[in-house]
Amino acid sequence: MCTGKCSRLIGIVLFPLGLCAIICNLLLYFPNGKILATEEITDYVWYFHGIIGAGLLVFLTAFMTLGAGGEGCCANRCGMLLSVLLALLGTAGGAYCVVISAMGLVDGPLCDTGDGTYTYPFRNDTEEESYLFQQNTWDICREPENIVLWNIVLFSILLGLGAIEALLCAIQVINGLVGFLCGTCLRKRRTGIA
């Protein structure tokens, strides 16, 4: 496959992934569609890992890879080199999303356990198995309703999206380096004389 076509394909795939990451991060602010006070929302949501890391940083990479894969001013060796630099930024953004999502999954949600105060009941859990695999412990969180499932699903989706984006951006780093060293292999159409 041509490096230009590969860049274009990666750019096209990164856009919906980044949009999904932003939506998932925004949904974490509204557990079960409820508006909560700032101090009642899980700490890891405030790192903006889906909005900035897997969203905006990946959008920058997607724009540049589309430009490097097209037939415009960026479809040359210089454009490929710039796509490498932005793909490194996108890889870091995807990895950041993976790390924060994993930490959010390990620590569990912030919730009211019935006494009116919001705590992390699963943080520093000393049991052999994580709360993730013991569904019978999830009912310890009374408010917001179903917060454990809400956090597990959204943080898992963000973890997966971040991993896919980091992988695609890493592939673009390699593709961009090959395009920079060997050229983009885009052929301009000849018009007129055959």
Rank of each mutant, 00 (worst) to 15 (best):
S83V: 03
L110A: 06
E143Y: 15
V98H: 02
T119E: 13
L88R: 06
I174E: 05
I35K: 15
L177N: 06
F63H: 03
I171P: 01
C6D: 03
F155W: 11
I12A: 09
L81P: 01
N25F: 00
E129N: 12
L9D: 04
I174V: 15
C2M: 12
R8P: 02
C169G: 05
G116V: 05
F155H: 13
V106A: 13
I52R: 06
N124A: 11
E127Y: 12
G4F: 00
L14A: 08
R190A: 13
R189W: 09
V148H: 05
Y44D: 08
A87R: 01
I174H: 05
K34I: 09
C20P: 00
I147W: 00
V148N: 05
C97S: 15
I152F: 09
L86W: 04
N136C: 06
S83K: 03
N25V: 04
A95P: 00
C2V: 06
D112A: 12
A68T: 03
E165A: 10
L105C: 04
I147A: 07
E129Y: 12
L9A: 12
W150Y: 12
V99T: 14
L82I: 12
P121M: 08
L159I: 00
A62W: 00
G104C: 07
L186D: 09
T117G: 03
M103A: 13
I193W: 10
G53W: 01
